[in-house]
Each structure stands twice: as structure tokens, then as C-alpha cells.
């Protein structure tokens, strides 16, 4: 299952709700303001590091770059482009968008 998160973890609880309910082995993809979850050294970094134990964590690179945080994203997060985004959706049986 692919979980897509597009809201800042500092403003909304989408990330927490997703992590509470996503089954192990799922893939998380951060897009738009969701990419702020990838910030190394932030108050959410430990939450995400923990999540990486159970989930494949991906982030949409162009959204990181737009926000000036491409160099600040945590190690261990897979960066994808738009084509990679499409691949993730195509290969997932179900997609849950945490709007």
C-alpha cells in the first residue's frame, strides 16, 4: 500500500495518523508541504527515523528543491522524481492520500 502525505507535519497531524494506521511494509511518499517531514534535525526527525524501520520512505525531489531543503533531507529516504511517483502509484495495489 502506498501512503501519500502532502501536508506539513508541523501544521497537521497527517503523518501521525498515517503512522498509527499504516501496516508494516507499506510505502510512504511525501509530496508538496509533506516533504518538510524529511528535515534532518527537526522535531519530527525521530518520528521519521522510527518510521523508516517499518516502512519504505520516499520523497518527491522537485518538492524538496522548491522548498530549499534538498540538502537537509535525512539519509535513508528514497528520492523520486515525477516518473518515480507514477511508478510507485502504478505498482501499488492501493493508494491512500492523507489530505
Amino acid at each position: 500500500m502506498l501512503h501519500i502525505i502532502n501536508k506539513s507535519p508541523f501544521e497537521r497531524n497527517s503523518l501521525e495518523s498515517c503512522l498509527r494506521t499504516a501496516s508494516k511494509g507499506s510505502t510512504l511518499l511525501f509530496i508538496e508541504d509533506g516533504v518538510y517531514a524529511a528535515l534532518e534535525g527537526s522535531a519530527k526527525a525521530d518520528t521519521l527515523r522510527q518510521a523508516m524501520q517499518d516502512y519504505t520512505v520516499c520523497v518527491l525531489e522537485p518538492d524538496l528543491a522548491a522548498r530549499g531543503i534538498a540538502a537537509k533531507a535525512m539519509d535513508g529516504i528514497k528520492r523520486v522524481d515525477y516518473a518515480g511517483f507514477v511508478d510507485l502509484v502504478a505498482e501499488s495495489e492501493r493508494v491512500q492520500s492523507w489530505l
Binding site: E11, Y36, P62, D63, A65, A66, R67, G68, I69
Partner: peptide, 23 residues
Amino acid sequence: MDDGVFQITKGQDTAGVEMKNFS
């Protein structure tokens, strides 16, 4: 304050998202 601090974060490059970089 809050996520507003991201408005003035250095190094914004919006070419990939095709939006205006107003920073």
C-alpha cells in the same frame, strides 16, 4: 513563525515544480 519560517529559507529552486520562486 511556525511554517512561515520556510518562506525565507535559502536555496529555493522551483524549476522542477513549475511554480514561481518568489523568495
